[in-house]
């Protein structure tokens, strides 16, 4: 396995996706959605600023909205909203919620269509299986990272432009943290979809299998939590365990999520590589 091959394949993947109708359309839609959403959120800023002046009601309003979205304890959320501009916290949460969709759009097809169309046969005698698998995964991840970057930049630009209040250092740092966190939470999704691609070998089926898997997990989780809540292992099988804990400034709350993210990604990459090395291509 050569790092040069991984990089060449990844770069080609990004270039190919950007030139494909699917990739270009996805990016345009993402930019439109981010722009519209940022403009809308920015529009509420005056009302929120006014309410913030009266302290608690604004925070309670924002906290209530975020609580329903993130299922974080309300006291934790209030702490976050007190520490950071509520608009940026909402943006952070919105970006985190968008990551799975972005990975579905930009990373569902890594090795699957290579296997399905047998285009992999033009690559296999020029590089090795590990480089092809990892190059495709890296290419998909770079696409997702690009999408997250575009979305973050557009959302931030519109929110800050309309809200009028901007603390250059603090807000930029917070936006940077939101961006990096979203990039990190995308890793297990890309790894999971990559593994499914190597197992399933058909690009569209990867999406349906992923959705089916999560529906089944949801049902099993529901049944287990009703019957024996202590046996409910299903949250660990999702690519992101309590990802909204990363919104908080609490290290002890974020650490288990981060550890799960790393373990889940490593496991998926390991299983995917194992399958890709052995399968007929």
């Amino acid at each position: 396995m050569l790092p040069r091959d991984i990089w060449i394949i990844a770069r080609f993947e990004v270039w190919r996706h950007l030139r494909s109708r699917h990739g270009a359309l996805g990016l345009v839609l993402l930019m439109l959605a981010s722009g519209v959403l940022g403009y809308q959120i920015g529009g509420y800023s005056e009302a929120v600023d006014a309410l913030v002046d009266q302290a608690h009601p604004a925070l309670l309003m924002g906290g209530g909205m975020l609580q329903s979205m993130t299922e974080l304890p309300i006291d934790q959320l209030m702490e976050v909203l007190n520490a950071h501009p509520p608009m940026l916290v909402m943006l952070f949460a919105g970006l985190l919620s968008m990551v799975p969709l972005a990975t579905y759009v930009f990373a569902f097809d890594q090795t699957a269509s290579e296997i399905e169309t047998r285009h992999a046969r033009y690559l296999l005698f020029r590089s090795d299986r590990d480089a092809i698998y990892l190059g495709k995964a890296l290419g998909a991840y770079l696409m997702v990272a690009g999408a997250v970057t575009v979305a973050t930049a557009l959302l931030a630009a519109f929110i800050l432009a309309r809200s009028g209040t901007f603390a250059p250092v603090e807000d930029t740092l917070y936006m940077g943290r939101a961006w990096l966190t979203c990039l990190a939470t995308a890793v297990p999704y890309v790894a999971f979809l990559g593994m499914l691609g190597a197992v399933v070998g058909k690009s569209r089926r990867v999406l349906s299998v992923a959705v089916f898997f999560w529906i089944v997990l949801g049902i099993v989780g529901g049944l287990l939590s009703t019957w024996r809540p202590e046996l409910d292992f299903t949250p660990y099988l999702f690519p992101s365990l309590s990802r909204y804990h990363l919104l908080t400034d609490s290290f002890s709350m974020g650490l288990p999520t981060f550890v799960h993210l790393v373990l889940f990604s490593v496991t998926c990459v390991g299983l995917g590589l194992w399958r890709f090395r052995r399968r007929d291509l």
Binding site: H119, Y122, F125, S127, D128, R129
Partner: peptide, 23 residues
Amino acid sequence: PGGAPPKGTYSILPQDAAFLPTV
């Protein structure tokens, strides 16, 4: 088994492989 031959020494016209349709 399943490994690549030494780089640059070997190539093949596979019977049933397709080029990427969008590139």
